[in-house]
């Protein structure tokens, strides 16, 4: 993990369409955390933003070759390091 690039560390919610990044941390516990992790959203996983629903929520992301949707307030738990 490159600690130098702290500037590019943002919450998944703030990512723009087609932006890519690597998950740094998932700060959710309990059912929410488990659901998120079970779907492969674990630190080190590479993700990209596929698009957003017409009302800009939920967000669709591409991970490990499939598409996953989650609500913005769920995306808040996930910190991402942007790929330059």
């Amino acid at each position: 993990m490159n600690r130098m690039s702290i500037k590019s560390k943002i919450a998944l919610r703030e990512m723009k369409d087609n932006q890519r990044g690597i998950i740094l941390s998932v700060n959710a516990n309990g059912e929410m955390g488990r659901r998120i992790r079970d779907m492969g959203l674990v630190p080190g996983a590479s993700i990209s933003i596929q698009g957003r629903a017409p009302l800009y929520d939920p967000v669709a992301i591409r991970i490990m070759g499939f598409t996953l949707t989650l609500r913005n307030n769920e995306a808040d738990y996930i910190m991402v390091e942007l790929e330059s």
Binding site: E31, M32, R35, I36, M39, P58, A60, F66, T67, L68, T69, L70, R71, E74
Partner: peptide, 10 residues
């Protein structure tokens, strides 16, 4: 609310 985390299957 139950987490929305859902797959969009091909």
């Amino acid at each position: 609310s139950t987490p929305f985390v859902m797959e969009l299957p091909s």
